[in-house]
Amino acid sequence: MVELKYEGDISQHSGQRVKPPELNVLYGLIGIAVIFEVLGWIFQGQSFLFNAQRLSIMILQVSVVGIIAIGVTQVIITGGIDLSSGSVVGATAMFAMSFAQVSSYTRAVYPALTDLPLLIPLIVGLSCGVLAGLVNGALIAYAKIPPFIATLGMMVTARGIAKWYTKGKPVSFPTDSFAGLGEGMTPVLWFIILAVLFQLALRYTVYGKHTYAIGSNAEAARISGINVERHLLLVYVIAGALAAFAGMVVASRGLTAQAGMGTMYELDAIAMAVIGGTSLSGGRGSIIGTALGMLIFGVIISGFTFLRIDAYYQEMIKGMIIVAAVVYDVYRQKTRVVVK
């Protein structure tokens, strides 16, 4: 019989603390930025990074998709996926804008409902996102339809609704208050507020703990008494609401809503999350990681433009980086299993 003794050092938190995975993403970001800096001096004769205007445009470009990625990250942490966010952006933009038009515009969608306070289009828009999230979540959690299929259906449906709503016509001329939603650098501000909020929620609340638990081992979560279905519903609703908010910001920025808005945003958002270290197999990831993933995304797009490289190459490289991030994730999983 093995002698059992309390070895005394479990209380001292000795042993190796695993370093946060976000560090690798940060190194990646720095590495890519430095490469563009060097290439900038070689080919353009100027600095890439030390240009306030370029940096602010870069962040502005990605922060709207970043808002979506905050929700998508949480969905992926539960082991799911959300392909519908881009279409939710389009549908929300249309619906919200139709309740945000000015009275001086004679061909408003609802001539009787013009010059409304910001709250009305905001509620309409968020309702669109919540509704999409509820349908996604219910299909996935209760009807047990794979997240890929359920949200793919929503992706096509929501885009259809966006086009049907005005028979494809754009909706324009918003009130000043609605136009203020995405004015100037406000999208960046929204992103920062929402990212901090949800990073804290994931890290320090029961909501976050259960989100990771479900993605890590849904059966264990269920046995432990977590209401897995209700929680998944909540996560998809949050993702839908965030996509809807992003939709309103996009429409507000452009002062117009078009049914095609947000096309492919879902893939960019997923890419940001995955590049930021969120595991597609669930249980791992963070908003900090996604924010870094978003910056990597921004640096690459803006770096390519800076070096005057064709947009075609940008997309090819973007695609390869996404695949590389997933390959890295799979590889990391494998090595860990071997350790076990």
């Binding site: 703990k209 990771y212 638990a213 890590s216 081992n217 059966e219 264990a220 046995i223 249980g283 791992r284």
Partner: peptide
């Protein structure tokens, strides 16, 4: 099957 969440 232990019912533990690996990532926690």
């Amino acid at each position: 099957n232990l019912a533990l969440a690996d990532e926690l």
